[in-house]
């Protein structure tokens, strides 16, 4: 089981659902568990919404490109945008004790993925998220209080 797929959507919120639906189908075809599919869909949607909000500053015709690599042991999702470079140092996981309405998306992404890395490209940013298959503990997960 080794696959690589590239999906592209224009940067509109309504198209984020297309990412989610396609990812669900792709992961199901690759025998990924329902729990993992739920978590991946959540992370991908949060990442895409962040691209529209922060890299492109609003909905527009520019592209969000998602490359998916699946092998026996892990899934890697690379989300590429071609917008403004976001200061990577400013991309932080939410401190729930100082809860604010925005910014929870990165917390969710880091909670469900095993590794999350932002990289500036010549134009835009590349976000690489990976998840080890069937790893209930997920090494990079945030500490949960309860």
């Amino acid at each position: 089981m080794v696959s690589e797929l590239i999906l592209k959507i224009p940067a509109y919120y309504k198209y984020v659902k297309i990412f989610k639906d396609l990812i669900e189908d792709i992961l199901e075809l690759n025998g990924i568990s329902k729990d993992e599919i739920y978590e991946v869909k959540l992370a991908i949607a949060e990442a895409a919404v962040n691209v529209i909000k922060h890299s492109y500053c609003c909905e527009c015709d520019k592209e969000i490109e998602l490359t998916i690599e699946i092998n026996e042991k892990s899934m890697v999702f690379m989300m590429r945008d071609f917008g403004e470079k976001v200061d990577i140092r400013e991309i932080k996981s939410r401190d729930l004790d100082n809860f604010k309405e925005n910014g929870l998306g990165v917390y969710i992404i880091k909670s469900v993925m095993d590794s999350v890395e932002y990289q500036h490209m010549k134009k835009g940013t590349l976000l690489t998220m990976s998840k080890v298959m069937g790893d209930g503990s997920c090494g990079n997960r945030e500490q949960h209080r309860d």
Partner: peptide, 14 residues
């Protein structure tokens, strides 16, 4: 529901 939805619920709760 996404992070924005969760966020608005917590803000309104507060």
């Amino acid at each position: 529901i996404d992070s924005s939805g969760v966020g608005i619920l917590v803000v309104c709760l507060k």
